[in-house]
Computed example of a mutant assay.
Amino acid sequence: MEVSIKTFDQFDIHELYEVLQLRSEVFVVEQDCVYQDLDGKDQKAIHILGYVNDHLVAYTRIFQPGDYFDQASIGRVVVSLKNRGEAYGQEIMKASVKYCKEQGFTTIKISAQCYLDKFYTDLGFISTGEKYLEDGIPHQAMVLEF
């Protein structure tokens, strides 16, 4: 998987469309969750895009400490349904964690869907606090410190 890192202003219109299409495909349609994906936060985020054969297969967005949580944060973690089981989720998260380390961040906090607990635990994240509903889906706060 080829990884690309961009600010919002570096997107061309086709890349932005691909990202929004992938997020909508998974978070709205597949998960049957009506929520406001276009939340006004993409402009602050760093976007990590994973491509295979020029097709977007995985994506995350990263916030600096203070932009979302007090700590750095990785969110909108998504892998295309047709590309699951190929370790692209681990690859895009490892690229995202690497970016955070390179920026000098020492802690990453995420709001993780509970059914993905093992996925994030295997990457070193630790669950903190109580489970909660976010957009009708059970979530938990998780942190990774280095």
Rank of each mutant, 00 (worst) to 15 (best):
A45M: 03
V28H: 00
L22H: 01
V34C: 07
R23W: 07
S80Y: 02
I48Q: 02
F8S: 03
S4L: 15
A45Y: 00
K131N: 14
L16A: 13
Q31K: 05
Q140V: 13
Q21E: 13
G75F: 05
D54T: 09
T121A: 09
A72E: 11
V77E: 07
E145R: 15
H47G: 08
C100M: 09
F8Y: 14
K94A: 12
L116Y: 06
I62D: 00
L81S: 14
I92M: 01
L81P: 06
Y120G: 09
L144Q: 05
S96I: 08
S4R: 15
I5Y: 13
V78K: 05
A58T: 08
S24A: 14
I74E: 06
R84I: 10
D67S: 12
K82L: 07
Q31R: 11
D32A: 13
G50S: 10
E25C: 00
R76D: 03
Q43H: 09
E102Y: 11
R84K: 11
A87K: 15
F11M: 12
Y115G: 02
E30Y: 04
V78R: 03
E30R: 04
K98D: 13
L133N: 13
D135Y: 11
D70V: 04
A141W: 00
D12P: 11
A141R: 08
V77T: 13
I126F: 01
G129H: 07
R76G: 09
L20G: 02
C33M: 05
E30C: 07
N53D: 15
I126P: 00
K94W: 02
L81F: 06
V97H: 04
E30G: 12
K94N: 15
M142N: 01
K118L: 12
G40Y: 01
V3K: 10
D39E: 05
F8T: 01
N53H: 10
C33F: 04
Q103A: 12
G75M: 09
D39S: 01
D42N: 02
G136E: 10
Y120P: 06
V3A: 05
K118Q: 14
D12W: 05
I74C: 11
F63A: 12
Y35Q: 11
L116P: 06
K131Q: 15
L144D: 01
L16S: 04
D117I: 02
S127K: 15
M142Q: 10
K118N: 11
E2Q: 15
N83K: 11
A95T: 10
G75N: 11
K6V: 10
L81M: 14
L16I: 00
E134C: 05
E15A: 08
Y132C: 04
L144C: 04
I13A: 14
E145I: 15
L49V: 00
L133W: 06
Y132Q: 06
I62E: 00
E18A: 13
G40S: 04
V143T: 15
D37H: 05
E18D: 14
K41H: 08
F11D: 12
I108S: 12
A58D: 01
